[in-house]
Amino acid sequence: MIRITQAALAAAFSLSLALSAAAADFDAGWTAYERGDFATALKEWQPLAERGDRRAQFNMGVLYDQGKGVDRSDKIAAEWWQKAALNGSVLAQHNLGQSYIAGDGVPQDMAMAASWLQRAAVGGHAPAQYTLGKLHAYGMGVARSDAEALRWYVLSADRGNERAQYNMGKSYRDGAGAPKDLAEAVKWFRRAADAGYAKAQSALGQRYLKGEGVEKNLGEALYWTALAEAQNLDRAEDDRAEITAQMATADVEAVRKRLAERGVTLK
């Protein structure tokens, strides 16, 4: 009994040593990476990656993709991401999908892109869910389907992806993939607008201006449009001029004050 316990302890001890050695290598690589010492990061991560550590494999892909510590090679980047992706790294599945969309290091292939993004999307990766939705919306690599696009946007939006939330708003506003529902459109535009997404702020301003899905309110329209303008959204400048032209000076001043509290100057 004692011998078994000792053997178990010894095994556990050596296992924990091995694990901490591996962890130290990875962390040393990460510290070097943060310092901008990419050569050291590469030196620490490469052996781990070659032994099948998917996190190190993923990071190796990033080093090659960005030419950090190595000559830039999107081909080698895609090879590391493919290894990590097959090992179940959703980040790598996502990036490999992006590589196939862009034709970076692999032939441009929208069907392959959709297939890798789908794996990451099923794994719960919100950016992959969003991009997969877009591929369905445009019929790139998959059959064109607004309903299928919306199905992926919902998952991504629920995980807080602002672009997906904005696209939910557009889908309900235009009746694309779901019955038209202006109140639902406003709800989703507002979520992305609250999170600071400029296009959604502009869209929400338009809903208030037109009184669609929400009671018409020029003050709110101006407020949200000005927030979008503060982020240099092109159309917001013209929209803001159009809205203020319809408002009493006192009402414009009230909005100016409200924006100033957020550190935004009304033009």
Partner: peptide, 15 residues
């Protein structure tokens, strides 16, 4: 979408 794919690749991670 191509430009978005190029600009929204996930960065290196310690997680």
């Amino acid at each position: 979408e191509v430009l978005r794919a190029r600009t929204t690749k996930a960065p290196a991670t310690a997680a």
